[in-house]
């Protein structure tokens, strides 16, 4: 049995080559080997959604795959999305609407919001809730999170100069 294998992954745009134990999850690899600790580990069984990352552009649970499976793929974490300002408006809306308290679930919430808002059209509140059905928050409840995502959805769809302010939504 091989104790370690070499993997090649692109993480946040950078080529990474490392030796990993086959049983190491992608989440452990990102947090432990690469020190990208924005990816959070909650349930480690694909229920809570705190560990979501983008794998070849699709949101997946990094706790539900081994790092070895990701070899040859492109991974983007919350750090990558933040650095290239892809979710700056979502982060600002979460801040404005107090859509977080402890913040543990927030990276996963932002990943889900990013995936949802990358689809064409403006999602309804029901559609936002459905998209969030795999993300647990144990502090605020979901109302303010839905508000924040709805605000960004409308702002992105609105012509420049007619943006909603966050406080109007859900007031």
């Amino acid at each position: 049995m091989s104790n370690s294998i070499n993997i090649n992954v692109t993480v946040n745009g950078e080529a990474v080559s490392r030796n990993v134990a086959p049983r190491e999850t992608l989440a452990d690899f990102l947090r432990g080997s690469l020190e990208l600790t924005g990816t959070h580990m909650g349930c480690e069984m694909g229920v809570c959604g705190a560990c979501l990352v983008l794998l070849d552009g699709r949101v997946v649970h990094s706790c539900l795959m081994f790092a070895a499976q990701a070899s040859g793929s492109e991974v983007e974490t919350i750090e990558g999305l933040t650095e290239r300002a892809a979710i700056a408006d979502i982060q600002e809306a979460f801040h404005q609407r107090n859509a977080l308290q402890c913040g543990f679930c927030t990276p996963g919430m932002l990943m889900t919001a990013h995936a949802l808002l990358s689809q064409p059209g403006v999602p309804t509140r029901d559609e936002i809730r459905d998209a969030l059905s795999g993300n647990y928050c144990r502090c605020t409840g979901y109302e303010s999170i839905v508000d924040a995502i709805e605000t960004v959805a409308r702002n992105r769809a609105a012509p420049a100069g007619s943006k909603n302010v966050v406080a109007e939504v859900g007031a």
């Binding site: 049995m1 086959p22 049983r23 999850t25 480690e44 069984m45 694909g46 649970h61 706790c63 539900l64 795959m65 081994f66 070895a68 499976q69 040859g72």
Partner: peptide, 27 residues
């Protein structure tokens, strides 16, 4: 065999299954 692994990986983590070899058929 592992494909998407969305049921198998939790089963491995909980040690409901513990194979010597994991065969990744996703490629």
């Amino acid at each position: 065999y592992i494909a998407g692994g969305q049921s198998l990986v939790p089963a491995l983590a909980l040690r409901l299954q513990a194979p010597q070899v994991l065969i990744d058929i996703a490629h």
